[in-house]
Simulated assay, not measured.
Amino acid sequence: MESLFNEKKGNKSLTSMIFEKIREDIMMGKYVSGEKIVEAKLAEEFGVSRTPVREALKQLELDGLVDNIPNRGVMVKGISKQDIDDIFAIRIAIEGIAVKWAIERMDDGDLEKLKEIFELMEFYTFKKDLDKIAELNTKFHEFIYNATKSRYLEHVLKDFQFFMKTTRYKSLRSPGRLDSALNEHREVLEAFIQKDIDRAVKAILRHVNNSRENTKRIGGLPE
C-alpha cells in the first residue's frame, strides 16, 4: 500500500488518491454503515502523514459517504437503497441521451474503437475474467460518453462515474449475467454500426434495466 501512494498517478494529489481508495473500500463493502474510520490507523496503513488522510475524509463527508460526528469521530454512512435507485434512474436518463448524441457525432474511427472494446469484452467473457470484464464494461460506456463530444455531459458524469462502476461490478456477479450482458452490449454496438438511434436507445435502456434487476437480485441494494 505504501508504494501505491509514494508514486503519484498523473496529476493526482496524495489526498485525491487516498480519497479514491477509501471511497472504493466503502463502496465495495470493506467498511459497513455505522463503522468508525480512524484517521491515525489509516495514515499508518497507507504510510502517510495524517494530513492527507484528514483532507480525504473531508471530501468523503462532502460526498455524503461519511459523517464527522462530534465526540464520536468519522462514521461510515455508505450507500443506501435510495442512493442506488437514484443512480440507476440517472443512468437511464443519461445513457439514452448519450447514445443518441454519440451516434450523431462519432466518426468511423470512433466506431472502430468501440468495436475493439467489445471484441475484448467477448474474449474476457469467454475466459470468465470478472475484473477485466467489469473494466471493459465501464470503458465501453465511457467511450460512448466521450463520443458525444459534449463537455457538459462530461462534467455531469465526472463525479458520478465511480458509482456507476460499482453498480456494474455488482450486477456482473449475478449468475449468468456475464453472457447476457455481453449480448446486450452486442445489441448496442450493432445499433451503432447501423446508426439506428431508436434501436440504440432501446438497447441501452434494456441493458441498464437488466443491470438494475441483477443488482437487486444479488443484494446490491441494501434494505
Rank of each mutant, 00 (worst) to 15 (best):
N183T: 14
K36Y: 11
K77D: 10
D86H: 08
Q59G: 09
A102K: 00
A203P: 02
D131C: 05
I26M: 01
R151Q: 14
E135W: 00
F160N: 13
R54E: 13
N71Q: 11
K127Q: 12
A102W: 00
E190S: 07
E61C: 08
I37F: 02
K9G: 11
K115C: 04
F19M: 11
E55I: 12
K21C: 12
P175Q: 02
T166P: 02
T167S: 09
R91W: 05
I87D: 06
D86C: 10
R105Y: 07
V99D: 01
Y152G: 12
Y31V: 05
I144A: 00
G220E: 00
T51V: 15
L178V: 04
K113T: 12
E61T: 13
L178W: 00
V32F: 10
T215S: 09
I193S: 05
K170H: 12
R54I: 12
K77C: 08
D129V: 10
E213W: 03
D179M: 06
M164D: 08
K139R: 04
D179G: 06
E61N: 13
K21M: 13
H207C: 07
S33K: 15
K128E: 12
H185A: 03
M164W: 10
K115N: 11
L189C: 01
N6S: 15
D83R: 02
G34I: 07
K81E: 10
K139H: 01
I92K: 07
I92L: 08
L221N: 01
G73S: 06
L65G: 01
L42C: 07
S174G: 04
S16I: 11
L65T: 04
R72E: 14
F163L: 14
I117A: 02
K36N: 11
G109A: 02
K127E: 10
D198E: 11
E119W: 06
Q82E: 12
K100W: 01
D86E: 12
E187N: 08
